[in-house]
């Protein structure tokens, strides 16, 4: 088992023929991901990376019956691309792009919720189920099939957690980057639910950072609903208030969103918190004995 994606997931790529779309699709196909085709408006009818290209998601949907889409289009077109996929009936959408206006995301989030679509991202590395499918920009070779579910707001921090759990021999069931934006398509809680129900997952690593209160909400949820051990790391203890730390969502505002608040709440709710980025793996080992 795993969550969200596996060998049978039929994937289309929006922004397939662009430089980012091409680079990452090539690597995903090489990893074994079942990419069935792509969409680039105006380029319908051609073949790219040996797969058919369509003008619209609707056309692709009719011919290929995909059940997931991964989006690499520039930020200013993302709102339309996500909504196009959602309206065409794709139920899992992963948006990698960074820099989407927040008001666009408010509109998108409302609509995908209405349509019952699972949106991952934006501003995220994507999802990987090691050994089965890679829908994202993460380096495949640091992953290993295994028992740890990983959820993170950051790309490279996810890779750290992955590397450490691979090095210690645990491996991962699935890894999901939910993204660093203030209005993400999916929350920690959405992913915790899936990992709790996944038989392959024995423990969950949740990598958070300053800004917002989604880690606090997750902590409360874990206390009441998650029976598997959760290990967490929160980045940004040294971040000053009021400054945006790279990610649009990583800002301490009005005294809310500090690392200390989050860590305190997580510990209160029975989450094991690694006190350092380099000790995520060893904390997992300690907890799983």
């Amino acid at each position: 088992m795993s969550i969200l994606v596996n060998k049978d997931t039929r994937v289309i790529v929006q922004g397939f023929t662009g430089s980012q779309g091409t680079l990452h699709s090539e690597q995903s196909i090489e990893y074994g991901t079942n990419i069935v085709g792509g969409v680039t408006p105006g380029k319908g009818g051609i073949e790219h990376l040996g797969k058919p290209v369509f003008n619209s998601v609707e056309d692709a949907k009719r011919s290929l019956d995909p059940n997931a889409s991964i989006i690499f289009v520039p930020a200013r077109f993302c709102k339309d691309s996500i909504l196009e996929s959602a309206e065409a009936g794709i139920k899992l959408i992963i948006c990698i792009t960074e820099g989407i206006p927040t008001l666009d995301m408010l509109e998108v989030k409302k609509r995908v919720d209405e349509l019952g679509v699972r949106l991952i991202g934006p501003n995220c590395p994507g999802i990987i189920t090691p050994g089965k499918a890679k829908l994202g920009i993460m380096p495949g070779d640091i992953h290993m099939p295994g028992s740890i579910g990983i959820i993170s707001r950051s790309g490279t921090l996810t890779y750290e957690a992955v590397k450490q759990t691979t090095d210690l021999g645990f491996g991962q069931s699935s890894c999901v980057g939910i993204g660093g934006d203030p209005i993400p398509g999916s929350s920690f809680i959405d992913m915790l639910k899936l990992f709790q129900d996944d038989t392959q997952t024995e423990a969950i690593v949740m990598v958070g950072e300053i800004g917002g209160t989604s880690e606090e909400a997750a902590a409360e949820y874990i206390k009441n609903n998650v029976t598997k051990p959760v290990i967490s790391y929160i980045a940004g203890k040294t971040a000053p208030a009021g400054k945006r730390m790279g990610h649009a969502g990583a800002i301490i505002a009005g005294g809310k969103g500090t690392a200390d608040n989050k860590i305190e709440k997580l510990q209160e709710c029975g989450v094991y918190v690694a006190d350092n980025l380099v000790s995520i793996g060893s904390k997992v080992a300690e907890v799983l004995g």
Partner: peptide
């Protein structure tokens, strides 16, 4: 100098640690 915003924050924290 770090690649990735999360890792950049994590690196700052590690230095402090």
């Amino acid at each position: 100098m770090v690649n990735g915003a999360g890792l950049a924050m994590g690196t700052m924290d590690t230095i402090k640690f």
